[in-house]
Simulated assay, not measured.
Amino acid sequence: MSLDTLFDHFEEKELPPDLSAFIIKTCLHMRKGEDFRSSMNNVAKDLREFTDSYASCIMTISRDLYRFDVIGESVRNNEIVLQNVFDKIPYEIVESWEEMILENDSIIIKNSDDMEYYAKRSPKWVETLKENGVESLCLIPFIHQNTIIGYMYLTNFDTSNIDNIKEAITLMSIFVSSEAAHHLLIERLRSLSLIDSRTGVYNRTAMNNMVDELSAQLKLAPAPFSVAFCYLNTLKTVNEKKGHDVGNTLLKEAGKVLKEVFQNDYIYRSSGDEFAIISTTCTEDEFEEKIENLKDLASDPEWLYFTVGYYTDNTDGALHSAMKYANKYEQEFNEEFYYNYPDMIK
């Protein structure tokens, strides 16, 4: 539903006094926040309390960067942190909402029949809903310049009140959309200097900044970390034989796979066909498991193939040394790849 349609819809009807008071109060709260995220948390809290829902969430989505962000959240009694929940959810699940929303401008789940209907449309998403105890849901997009730039949703509410709940969240989406659009513009300007546009991961400048900062921290307080270098062996051959447009598609897929495997880690495009990973949250075994997962997903010598060298430092905190070791191991595996596939272009 476009903004013009929304305005026409609400212009033709008289809003209930309690809903009008809620909108005014929440818009004031949105201006009261000390920063953007605290303002959005205020909106989420007001919306959750007005609708007597268990959880309320506000998210933005950036398709060209293959990312979404939780910008506001509120959960009854602060029982869970929604950001932690969404850290485990891949971008593709959130991306799938748009197609389902096109049917009737929202996604509403009131009962098990609705849940099973959406399970057929997006089984992985519904699986996450069930895992997190969601029994009812109202999800509304917010729109800027006829483009979906984010979503607001409520969970576990009195479904007999769904019409009023949908009206409240839809109205709030109008006011949130302009704030979110401004936030996305600022974030985009910031990201342009740090994000590699072809892959959606951090660029070399961001890596250099991170290495300098983390290296200084580790010297003061050594802590376990892991690093890896991942070489995209097939890129030069694809560029030469199929053209750079196809090569750019390969880079895009490479970035997507890396972000799926190394969630919550730092991913950088360190050079044209090489990526670096820095992890400060995984154990050695967990990092090795991710490496093996990457090798399984990127083992096609005709398309996506990574050779990987990695190193874990559990005691010394010597980041530069660890990166040298990882890079050395990657180069050794790299030579082995070209020995096994002599027709590939180095």
Score class of each variant (00 low, 15 high):
Phe36Met: 05
Gly309His: 02
Ser39Cys: 07
Lys25Glu: 15
Phe36Cys: 03
Phe229Met: 12
Lys295Tyr: 00
Ser136Gln: 09
Asp46Cys: 11
Asp105Cys: 02
Ser197Gly: 06
Ser53His: 04
Thr159Trp: 01
Gln331Ser: 15
Ser215His: 09
Val94Leu: 14
Pro16Thr: 14
Phe22Tyr: 10
Thr283Pro: 03
Asp113Ser: 11
Pro17Phe: 10
Ser112Phe: 01
Glu131Ile: 06
Glu289Met: 03
Val261Leu: 08
Ser62Thr: 12
Lys166Asp: 07
Ala168Arg: 03
Asn209Ile: 07
Lys32Phe: 07
Ala254Pro: 08
Cys27Gly: 10
Tyr66Gln: 15
Ala44Tyr: 04
Leu319Arg: 08
Thr5Pro: 00
Phe275Arg: 04
Phe142Tyr: 11
Gly272Asp: 12
Ile23Thr: 03
Glu284Trp: 00
Ile71Leu: 03
Ser178Ala: 09
Arg121Asn: 11
Asp273Pro: 02
Asp245Ser: 14
Ser20Met: 14
Glu92Cys: 04
Leu232Trp: 03
Leu154Pro: 04
Ile186Ala: 07
Ala168Gln: 06
Ser299Glu: 06
Ser122Val: 12
Met172Phe: 08
Ala216Tyr: 12
Thr249Asp: 10
Ser136Trp: 07
Lys346Gln: 11
Ile109Ala: 03
Lys252His: 12
Gly200Asn: 08
Asn233His: 06
Glu286Ile: 00
Ile169Asn: 02
Gln331Asn: 14
His244Trp: 06
Asp273Thr: 05
Gly200Trp: 01
Gly72Asn: 08
Ser56Met: 00
Leu15Gly: 06
Thr26Glu: 09
Glu73Gly: 03
Tyr329Ala: 14
Ile93Asp: 13
Ala55Trp: 01
Tyr91Ala: 08
Leu15Met: 14
Arg48Asn: 04
Glu213Leu: 13
Ile345Tyr: 01
Glu14Ala: 13
Ala326Asn: 04
Glu336Asn: 12
Thr51Leu: 03
Val94Asn: 11
Asn248Lys: 10
Lys252Gln: 11
Ile143Gly: 03
Phe157Ala: 01
Leu15Lys: 06
Phe157Arg: 02
Ala21Val: 00
Ser321Glu: 13
Leu220Tyr: 10
Pro222Gln: 09
Arg76Cys: 02
Glu260Thr: 10
Glu99Ile: 08
Ser20Tyr: 12
Glu92Arg: 13
Ile24Glu: 15
Glu99Lys: 13
His29Gly: 15
Asp265Lys: 00
Glu336His: 13
Arg198Leu: 13
Ser191Ala: 15
Glu103Tyr: 10
Asn164Lys: 11
Gln331Phe: 11
Ile89Gln: 03
Lys88His: 07
Ile140Gly: 05
Val176Ser: 05
Val134Glu: 12
Thr315Ile: 04
Glu49Met: 10
Asp114His: 08
Leu304His: 12
Tyr54Val: 05
Phe175Ile: 07
Pro141Cys: 05
Thr147Ile: 06
Ser321Cys: 10
Val134Thr: 15
Glu98Ser: 13
Glu95Pro: 01
Phe337Gln: 05
Lys32Asp: 13
Phe287His: 10
Ala168Leu: 01
Asn293Pro: 00
Tyr151Ile: 00
Asp4Ile: 06
Val43Lys: 04
Ala254Glu: 03
Ala254Cys: 02
